[in-house]
Every structure is written in C-alpha cells, then in structure tokens.
C-alpha cells in the first residue's frame, strides 16, 4: 500500500472525475431514452439544456485528464526511486498485474475522449444536431471505460509493495526471455523499418487519393508500428545502447525528455487521422485534419529517423 502525496492527489482527482462523470452519465441516460427532436415540450427543452451540462463536464474531464496523465507519468518515475529494482516507470508499471493494462487503457481513453470532443463539436455545429443521441450513447460506453481505468489505477497503487523487488526495464524488455515482448523485439529490424516506412508512404498515398477510410485505418496501424519500432529499434539509437529498449526512460531528463515530444506528436498526428474515418466532416474540416495528421506524423517520423542516421554518420556503423 503506497501513499505518497502524489498518489493522494491522483486519488482525489479520480474521485472528482468519478463524481462528475456519473452525473454526466445520469443525464446521458435520460437524454438517450427520452429525447425527441420533434417534440416541443418543457421536458425536451430541459433535456437540451442538460446536454450542455454533460458536454461541459466531459470537456473538463478530458482536459484535466491530459494534465493528470502527465502527472501520472511523473509519479511513476517518482515511485521508481522508492521501489527496489525499478529504475524508471517501466519497473513500476510492471510491479503489479494491473500496470500494463492500466497504461494501455489510459491511452485508449485519451483517444476516445478526444474523439468524443470532436463528435460534440460536429454535433453542435450542425443545425439538425445529427449526433445528439449518438454522442451520448458513446459516452455511456466511455463512462464504463473511465470507471474501469479509475478502479485499475486504485488497485495498482494499492497493491504496490515497496518491499518486493521488481524488474527493471532491462529485464522487461530483454530479448532473451520467452516473453511476448522478447518475441516482438527479436523480429528483424529491417522488417519493422520496412513496415514502418511503408505504412507511412501508404498514408501519403491515401491522402493524395483522398480516401479517408484507408487513411484512418493506416493511422491506426501507424500507432502500433510506431510504438513497436520505437521500442525495438529507434529507442536503442536514442539511448545509443543496443539492449536498452525501454519506452519510459525516454521521458527522463537524461534524454532531454524527448519521449514527451515523440509521444505527443504521435498522439496528435494519429488521432486526427483516425478520426477522419469515424465521422463526416465539411470539406474544409477534412482538409485541416488531413494536414494536421500528416504534419505531426511526419514530424514524428523525422525525429525518430534522425537518431539512427545521426548515429551512423557520427560513428560509421549501426548498433
């Protein structure tokens, strides 16, 4: 049971999230089941007003969540100093059974909440309110994901044992064990790189052809291949150590916090790409999203590609 001020802060904010999200959930249910666009009764007007409340709450939760997510990463690093054996966040994540799932869920939730916000903006800007009921149905599902995340997080912090030794990222991401991760990492880097750059090129093609569904799908694949290639290949060039595969250590000062930049670029770029395939946008909006998506994914690509190239130029060999 671990109780540092940072963890208490996270608990408090989670509590606030839970309370407000539940309020929003209550109203969402009402709206989904009772709202009738064509009726003009007082009930309908009330529901319309309540839809603003739900939207505001969700907006607040999302933006605060981003801050808390950053804080969460800091906290993981912090805990790593008091957890024997852990030298970066990876050790803490792995300290309990919940850690990895929590992290994945957090990231998925970020994408989903962002999606909801775009959905909401689109809905508000259309006179017929095309997504009104739909967005609340989506929220009803999202609510459970949020609650799931809060529960997992509480469980994780609760069950961290400062007395038992955990693996450090060197062990978690080693290539020699029979773990899932090891198998992933022992794939030939050439294949990974080929996949990475191919998907990117395909993204550009689908942009030129203006096929938003393929573009969206490719962005989704891009997230996955980026993370894998980062851990397996690019990361090692950032660390200049062929066995250092940890995605967390990038976030530390030793590496100029480059991890934050990379992950943020990846998120913004791929989110805008993915969302294109999920909704209809005006021509202008669509164009903007294509541009933002390509801009950030290209930035990401350039950044990660820089490291192996720079290394090769400096040293004349690859790792």
């Amino acid at each position: 049971m671990l109780l540092t001020p940072e963890i208490i802060t996270i608990y408090i904010l989670n509590l606030i999230f839970f309370i407000f999200a539940s309020v929003a959930f209550y109203y969402s249910v009402k709206i989904v089941f009772l709202y009738d666009k064509n009726a003009m009764s007082t009930l309908q007007y009330k529901l319309q007003k309540q839809s603003y409340l739900v939207a505001t709450i969700i907006k607040f939760i999302f933006y605060t969540k981003i801050l808390v997510f950053l804080f969460f990463i800091f906290t993981l690093d912090d805990i790593a100093t008091i957890l024997p054996g852990a030298m970066c966040g990876a050790g803490v994540v792995n300290a309990t059974a919940y850690g990895t799932y929590l992290l994945i869920l957090k990231i998925i939730n970020l994408y989903i909440f962002a999606y909801w916000l775009v959905l909401n903006t689109q809905d508000i800007n259309s006179e017929e309110q095309v997504y009104l009921k739909y967005k609340f149905q989506v929220y009803m599902a999202v609510y459970f994901l949020l609650v799931g995340e809060i529960i997992l997080e509480s469980l994780m912090f609760f069950s961290i044992d400062t007395k038992s030794v955990v693996d450090c990222c060197g062990t978690i991401f080693s290539t020699t064990d029979g773990t899932y991760m090891a198998k992933l990492l022992s794939v030939d880097p050439m294949i990974l790189l080929a996949t990475f750059y191919t998907i990117y090129s395909l993204m550009i093609c689908s942009y030129i052809l203006k096929n938003k569904y393929i573009f969206s799908l490719l962005n989704l694949l891009f997230v996955i291949i980026s993370l894998v290639s980062l851990i397996a290949y690019f990361g090692t060039y950032i660390y200049e150590l062929p066995t250092h595969h940890c995605p967390f250590c990038l976030l530390q000062r030793d590496y100029n916090y480059i991890g934050y930049l990379l992950y943020i670029f990846l998120f913004i770029g791929t989110f805008h790409g993915i969302v294109l395939g999920l909704m209809d946008f005006s021509v202008e909006e669509e164009r903007k999203k294509y541009r933002i998506s390509l801009f950030f994914t290209t930035l990401y690509l350039l950044f990660v590609s820089y490291f192996p190239i720079a290394y090769y130029i400096k040293n004349g060999v690859c790792l």
């Binding site: 904010l13 603003y52 409340l53 607040f60 801050l67 804080f71 800091f74």
Partner: peptide, 21 residues
C-alpha cells in the same frame, strides 16, 4: 508546483461547472 496546481485550479474549476451551467 505541478501537484499544487492540480489540487487547486482544476478542483476549483470543477466546482464551478454546475453553477455556471
């Protein structure tokens, strides 16, 4: 500083949501 920020600003803002609405 970040921790103090998180405990003050968002908390206050959340308190204002329902009244503002």
């Amino acid at each position: 500083l970040f921790l103090l920020f998180l405990l003050s600003v968002p908390v206050y803002l959340f308190a204002t949501i329902i009244p503002s609405w």
